[in-house]
Structures are given as structure tokens and as C-alpha cells.
Amino acid sequence: MGERGAVRLESLTRSYGRVVALNGVDLEVRAGELLTLVGPSGSGKSTILRLVAGLDRPDGGRILVDGQDVARIPPHRRAVAMVFQDYALYPHLTVLANLTFGLRVRRVRRQEAERRARAAADRLGIGELLDRYPDQTSGGQRQRVALARALLREPTVYLLDEPLASLDAPLRFATRAELITLHRELGTTTVHVTHDQAEAMTLGDRVAVLDRGRVRQVGPPQQVYDEPADVFVAGFLGSPPMNLVPGGGVLGGADDVTVGVRPEDLALDPDGPVGAAVEAVEALGSETILLTRCPDGTRLTVRTGPRPGVRPGDEVRLRADPGRLHRFDTASGRRLR
């Protein structure tokens, strides 16, 4: 089956009381790819995962896994495995029992279940933890246990709900790389939810940006970053976010247009056309972020190299890379070609 592991969402809607979580979501996850769903909290990312997993039912629309409508298939018959944000490990069971839980429920014999659990644990480097209880392991170890538990389901689709959110920064960095490696080895379709735009940029083959229950843009991370489809995506991806200036302002452009430029596409240039006063300097070591203010009140964020020799209060001249200006229709927010 060439379709194996492909997930398709068709005009999916879901409301909780008056809150619209999903407002007509169309999304295609290709077989074998790692798709990242990114968006601010409340954008509907987790709702999508819960609907695909079968933990919740859509109000309208269809979900197809492997080309098959899963509406009438109960969660455990769907070929999906979910890793929960806080891992949802059973606190009263050892790591080994946590791993064999699902197999035992599905009446796999104990010896066989334990053999498979050990194999999965070894694969994720938690072989020595099998006799411990979840509260005797670290956050990173717990995350691996949750992943191993998902592995044991041998699903065609993995659903990861903010799997890195509860890890501290260095661990998150290392685990991110491991997730990519694991996905490459397994080659299984993976939908990964995050609110961290840096994670979205680095982790996925493609990224889908959500806002208020709608998919704003889907594409390879770099493409979405370079050509954001609308003002929301432009502002959400990238840190610090893109400068967005109304047309006719310091970045030029027509009146009904919003002009955007990323901080790294603004350069300090003594002959630059835009004058601005430096309000704050954030030295990050490898780079420096300048917060500036133009005479007309427009604030521009500039990303420049380390040690730029600029102090708050200094007057600087800025030049925007003309090839890297973004134009958006002010009324609709859509990108203009």
C-alpha cells in the first residue's frame, strides 16, 4: 500500500461550547513524513491530534488514515500511537509494566510482551530503568519511556503532543536531534505538535502553521519562513519576529499594503535610507539584536553580528535588503506576489 501512513483531514470542525477549536481544517500528511503542527496555544493543534487518535470526535469533516475513513473505528483499532505532553506514564507500574501494558491488554503473552518491551527499551537506551517506577526517573528518561511505549504499538502514524515541552533547554536540544534520527530510522509518518517555532523550524519535513482553528500555511520550514502566506505566519515564525510596517512608512510601499522585513534582512549601513535611534541592545554572544525607533515612531528590530559597536541612544542608518521585502494586503493580511 503506497498510502500506508498517509493522513488526510477534510474540512474538519470541532467546537467546545462557544469555543471554536477547529474551523474547517484541510491537511494532508504524506506517508512517512514528519509534519510539525505549530501555532499559539488555543490554535487547535492538540485538538487535531486528539481527533486523529480517536480520543474525541469531530463535529464535521472527515479523517482518513491509510485512505480509510476512521470515524467509526475506536481509538485502539486505529493504527496510531500517541505520546502525551506529560507522557501519561502509569505511576503505579514499573517502566517495564508501563511498556507491556498495551501488549498485555491485547493479550500478548507475558514473556513475549516483556521480550518486545526490552527490545524497545534498549533501542531508546532505557534498558536499565525497567525495574524503576516513573517517579524514580528523570524527565528525559520518562520521555523515552513514553516513546518506547508508542514504538511497541507499531503504528503507521505517530502523534507527538509537545514531546519536548517538559524538558530543560540542553536536553530538549539533544532530544530534538534524536527524534529526527528515530524518525529517519523508522520511516513512519509522524505528526508532531509544538508551540515552539524553533522546534517547528528544525524538526519537521514540513510545517503546518495553525491559528484559531485554521491552517494558515503548509510547506517546508524554510519555504514557510521565506515566503509566509500571511501576516500571522510572518509574525509567528522567526524570533525576533518580522518587522511589519504599514505602507508609505519607512519601508515604502503603497497605502493598502503592509511591508515586512525580517530583522536579519535589515543591515546597519551609514548610507542607508532609514534613520533610527537605538533604544536597546541585546547582545546574545553570536549575534546582537537592536531595538530601534524611527522618527515617525515605527519600531524596527535589527539582527546583526556580535559587537556592533552601538549603544542605546545612538543614531543609526538602516538598509533593508530589497530582495527580501515581504508585501501583504493590509485588508486581508494575505501575501502579495
Partner: peptide, 28 residues
């Protein structure tokens, strides 16, 4: 934690399985 029950439901654990494998041991 409600998520424990969701995790169990995903594994195919029905209401009685959840009672036996989760609720009662956790409330022991």
C-alpha cells in the same frame, strides 16, 4: 490524571480494564 485513561483507551483498555488496571491500583 485523565490522560492516563486516554492512554489506556488508546491501548484498547475498556471501562472494566481501566477500573482493574488503573483506578483500583491507583486508589489502593
Amino acid at each position: 490524571d485523565g490522560r492516563l485513561y486516554e492512554a489506556a483507551a488508546l491501548e484498547g483498555c475498556g471501562p472494566f480494564g481501566q477500573l482493574r488496571r488503573l483506578t483500583l491500583p491507583l486508589l489502593a
